[in-house]
Design a protein around this nucleic acid. Structure first.
Lengths: 182, 182
DNA sequence: GTCTATACATCGATAGAC
DNA sequence: GTCTATCGATGTATAGAC
């Protein structure tokens, strides 16, 4: 079961999440296509398992981090890890953070890990000085913009994501200035 | 031919670009599916025509703008129009600026309008003070991040894109400070 | 240019034997 | 749990009559 999901990730990496078929997956794990229905009641159930698995991987990596005390440094370390996770497997990133499969919506259970990741990020943003919903929205959109541009235009490089720390400072400094002004 | 492309856009708006089928398109224009091959030699040729058409729409709207003299105001007007264009038809935005169709790559000819739009944006960014490749990259990624977040999470609202002008000032001000420091 | 008819392929899903 | 066999739906593309 875990092996099937792992193989599904392999195939997705090779040809894209949307191009994954049960026939190909079954062949790759040495089974026939109908046998997969013993483990997943539908193709979307497979996607849901992949979604949960990917978020679990991400959460594991993020919680394993030994974050520095300084809030700004902690935020950079956290976000740097997040970005690396996204870049190292584009199709996993796509499945977790975009909606590449028409008709597939993650189940509530699979969403729990994703929720935990987001909550962790928001908490770090708060202690680093981005407290309003607006500031959090803008910062997260900025990070996502960097990752998306990187994946779309320069998958193997760092042309966009290398600016993460500088832009993080930019957003935090501006918020700090705004706070002081009051 | 233009009518077919227009109808293709309608259908894409209703059900997503990826869900567009030649049968449905033919039915909608009052023909049978094989008749479409008189106008497009393949489905990807249809996508290519849509891609060119969408970029032509965008370029037309942007060149029609009466931009203010102030570089910063001009940039905001330009980007505001770009963002509005993206938000008002999400599936058009997807086809133009993401790769939602596996196996479809725009032809070189269809890319010309897209290139013109990008060049125009870069020129405006230069006169507004963002001159380096790095600054242009970051700014465009930021705008795309706002649009993507908006479309994905709040298609009918303005939770993200309403920060466009403020963030534009943020990026321009920071570049200005950097320039002065030298 | 538009039609009918159909080839051809892919894919998800189910039935039922072992 | 895994198999064979097959259904049923969908979708692109082509052949050839009109």
């Amino acid at each position: 079961m875990a092996a099937i999901v792992a193989t599904a990730w392999e195939l997705s990496r090779a040809q894209g999440v949307g191009a994954l078929t049960l026939h190909a997956l079954a062949r790759e794990v040495g089974m026939r296509q109908p046998s997969l229905y013993v483990y997943f009641e539908s193709k979307n159930a497979l996607y849901d398992a992949m979604f949960a698995d990917g978020n679990r991987q991400l959460l594991e990596r993020l919680t394993k981090l030994d974050l520095p005390d300084d809030p700004r440094a902690a935020l950079k370390a956290f976000m740097g890890t997040f970005v690396s996770f996204g870049i190292e497997d584009q199709d996993r990133y796509t499945l977790l953070f975009q909606r590449p499969i028409p008709g597939f919506e993650p189940s509530a259970a699979s969403y729990e890990h994703a929720r935990a990741v987001l909550d962790h990020a928001i908490a770090l943003l708060h202690t680093a000085g981005l407290e309003s919903q607006d500031d959090v929205d803008c910062f997260i959109a900025m990070v996502a913009g960097l990752i998306d541009a990187q994946i779309a235009n320069d998958p193997a490089g760092d042309r966009w994501i290398r600016h993460l720390d500088r832009l993080t400072d930019l957003y935090l400094d501006e918020a700090k200035r705004r706070t002081r002004r009051r």
